[in-house]
Design a protein around this nucleic acid. Structure first.
Lengths: 244, 244
DNA sequence: CGCATCCTTGAGTTGAATCAAGGGGTGTGG
DNA sequence: CCACACCCCTTGATTCAACTCAAGGATGCG
């Protein structure tokens, strides 16, 4: 087992030196368990820590005045969690566990030190921030300009792809692990309408469902319906500084 | 006149050393003019350069299959432009000038060097990436969960605040400089409906309009209607590494 | 077994889109 | 210097995608 989840993630793209590995390991010295449903950071609470998600599944969301919820992002092992809090005194979003999870907390100063001593790792953190930014713009375009069906289709594809990073054996079929209400809050729809869209996708033979499992039956057609691009692919990292 | 627009922006938060100023100046050695309507980067074209916007106003957007457009962001002097292209071979979004503009292009390697030699500046670039990320999540929540009126109100407030960073004299009244179609493409609405929402805001005495100028008549009420937070305020930068 | 949570489907409503028509300003070429 | 074209704004009428409300059904848990 590797010392660092984040190192493993970065390692997909880069050959890390031993010193770098050790530096990343230091970010994950401490561990904290979060039970399913547990809150890691609450919106508008002081945010002095950042986390690496080591195990489990989490999500971040904001609540609006009228009580409605917008899910911003689902978080997978190796993701940096709560980075929004990096630049503010209070966390801009709530982070909760969707499954029993383990996170590694570290404080802002540790990140600062890392960037000072390992510019290449600092650059990689910037890279991930950009990937997430672009993924967010994709979702923005989806909410602003695409149909309910397309948004649900895109969510299914994204979740499948992100699960697959951890478990290479996943192909068409996977456990989504979200309620239809959660899908709705992520896609800007109501739970009822999500249900209808799933049914439509099923009737159109793009997916099939049974017992909590979703199977992507016609990936080409689904991708076309979804307008989906995997932003974790085809990176250009040729410009990164050398290792230190 | 300062040597660097970006340095000026950062200087609002930080006392830059002379070496740092010089390093930032180097990013803006070259200049390129872009006429109103001119395209700086086209989606899916090779993206080897990044830019600092020095003068003018630009926007970034994506086009969907059905020809509809989602405006992702408006860009103001001092903003880093095209950073999405940093991590991909092709630009993920199109960038065009809304007014005659001047940008300073530099390549990815220059950013890499900057991060290596000036970790604090690298950290500031990460800070701005995070600010934009959080601002994007605000807009995501707006598109997913708020009414047309709230979205238009939020856009007006955001544009006013960002113009004000450059021109401190701006208070309630300012030139928006966007067509209603552009407002619609930014907020996920049609131009027709944007028009109706502007009229409503006017009828409700939250704003007034004449001759291309918008006046925010009741800022409190507009902010309440918009659910808007200025993400460029109240930063926590206490954790930044020391200058080099 | 009983309660809670989630899923499903139907019926009716509504916020925003679409379709349509006209008005005002501006730039340009005859 | 006028006339035409173009672009943008405005408003009304109609349509439609997604929401709300409502009622059951399935599943799982204490």
């Amino acid at each position: 087992m590797s010392g660092s989840c984040f190192a493993e993630r970065i390692g997909d793209h880069l050959d890390l030196t031993e010193v770098e590995q050790k530096a990343l390991h230091r970010l994950e010295e401490r561990e904290r368990a979060v039970k399913r449903g547990g809150v890691l950071v609450r919106e508008n609470d002081p945010a002095s820590e950042i986390f690496i998600l080591r195990k489990g599944l989490m999500m971040s969301y904001v609540l609006l005045d009228d009580g409605s919820r917008q899910i911003l992002r689902f978080l997978f092992p190796g993701d940096m969690v709560g980075a929004g809090g990096l630049v503010y005194h209070e966390g801009p979003e709530t982070i909760v566990a969707l499954a029993d999870s383990v996170v590694c907390p570290f404080d802002k100063a540790a990140l600062s030190t890392l960037m000072e001593t390992h510019p290449r790792l600092g650059a990689m953190i910037l890279v991930y921030a950009q990937i997430e930014r672009v993924a967010l713009t994709d979702r923005l375009a989806a909410l602003g300009r695409t149909s309910a069906k397309a948004r649900v289709a895109a969510l299914l594809l994204e979740m499948r792809n992100r699960f697959r990073v951890m478990d290479k054996t996943i192909r068409g079929e996977f456990v989504l692990g979200l309620t239809q209400e959660e899908i709705g809050d992520a896609t800007g729809l109501t739970a009822v309408h999500v249900n209808r869209m799933l049914r439509q996708l099923e009737d159109d033979k793009l997916i099939s469902r049974e017992g909590g499992k979703v199977r992507i039956a016609d990936e080409k057609a689904l991708t076309r319906a979804a307008n989906y691009v995997d932003r974790y692919e085809n990176l250009d990292l040729s410009w990164l500084p050398g290792a230190r």
